[in-house]
Amino acid sequence: MNNAFTPNPFPPGRPVAIQSSGHQSAFKIILGIFFAMIAALLGLIVLLLIGAETGPVQLFIGLICACLPVPLYVMLLLWIDRYESEPLWMLATAFFWGAAIAVFFAFILNTANEVIVASATNNSRIGQNFGAVISAPIVEESAKALILFILFFWKRDEFDGIIDGIVYAGMVGLGFAMTENIAYYGRAVQGGLRRHGWARFCDD
Score class of each variant (00 low, 15 high):
Cys65Leu: 15
Val103Thr: 12
Val172Gly: 00
Ala120Arg: 02
Arg200Ala: 10
Ala177Tyr: 02
Ser142Glu: 00
Ala136Ser: 10
Phe60Leu: 15
Ala40Trp: 09
Val57Arg: 08
Leu91Met: 13
Leu42Asp: 04
Cys67Ser: 14
Leu63Lys: 05
Trp89Cys: 09
Ala40Ile: 02
Asn181Thr: 11
His23Gly: 11
Leu41Pro: 00
Arg156Gly: 10
Pro71Lys: 04
Gly186Pro: 07
Tyr184Thr: 10
Gly191Cys: 07
Phe95Ser: 03
Leu59Gly: 00
Ser119Leu: 14
Glu158Ser: 14
Ala40Lys: 02
Ile163Arg: 03
Leu77Val: 07
Phe149Lys: 03
Phe105Tyr: 14
Pro12Ile: 09
Phe104Val: 07
Gly173Arg: 02
Pro7Ile: 09
Ala145Ser: 05
Leu31Asp: 01
Ala17Met: 11
Leu193Gln: 06
Gly22Trp: 10
Glu114Phe: 06
Gly22Leu: 11
Ala40Tyr: 04
Pro71Leu: 02
Pro69Glu: 09
Gly43Leu: 09
Glu86Asp: 13
Pro11Gly: 01
Leu78Val: 03
Ile64Asn: 04
Trp79Pro: 00
Ala40Cys: 02
Ala145Lys: 07
Leu72Met: 04
Leu41Val: 11
Trp198Ile: 00
Leu193Trp: 10
Ile147Cys: 06
Gly161His: 06
Tyr184Lys: 12
Gly161Ile: 10
Ala136Cys: 05
Val115Phe: 13
Ser25Trp: 03
Ile30Ala: 14
Ile33Gly: 04
Ser142Gly: 07
Phe35Glu: 04
Glu53Pro: 00
Lys28Gln: 08
Pro15Gly: 08
Glu140Gly: 10
Phe149Ser: 09
Phe130Asn: 04
Arg194Lys: 14
Phe10Gly: 00
Ala120His: 04
Ala120Gly: 00
Val16Pro: 00
Gln24Val: 12
Leu41Ala: 14
Leu72Ile: 07
Leu59Asp: 04
Leu44Lys: 13
His23Val: 15
Leu41His: 13
Ala52Trp: 13
Gly173Glu: 04
Leu76Pro: 03
Gly192Trp: 15
Cys202His: 05
Trp79Asp: 01
Ile150Val: 15
Ile126Glu: 08
His23Ile: 15
Lys155Pro: 01
Ile166Leu: 15
Cys67Asp: 03
Gly173Pro: 07
Lys155Met: 06
Gln58Cys: 12
Pro15Asp: 08
Ala199Asp: 11
Phe5Pro: 01
Asp164Cys: 08
Phe176Cys: 07
Phe60Met: 13
Lys155Asp: 05
Ala106Lys: 07
Met75Leu: 15
Ala94Ser: 15
Trp97Asp: 00
Ile45Gln: 12
Lys144Tyr: 12
Val70Gly: 08
Arg82Ser: 15
Arg187Thr: 13
Gly131Phe: 12
Tyr184Asp: 00
Phe27Met: 09
Gly175Tyr: 05
Ile38Gly: 00
Pro87Lys: 12
Ile108Thr: 04
Glu86Arg: 15
Leu91Trp: 05
Ala26Pro: 01
Val189Ile: 14
Gly13Pro: 03
Leu47Gln: 11
Ile162Tyr: 14
Leu174Val: 06
His23Gln: 15
Leu42Arg: 05
Trp89Tyr: 12
Gly127His: 05
Ala118Thr: 08
Ile134Glu: 09
Ala26Arg: 07
Ile101Cys: 02
Leu72Ala: 03
Ile163Asp: 00
Leu48Gln: 10
Arg125Glu: 10
Gln190His: 14
Leu63Glu: 00
Val70His: 08
Gly197Tyr: 06
Ala26Phe: 12
Leu78Tyr: 11
Cys202Trp: 01
Ile64Ser: 05
Ile134Thr: 06
Leu49Ala: 09
Val133Leu: 14
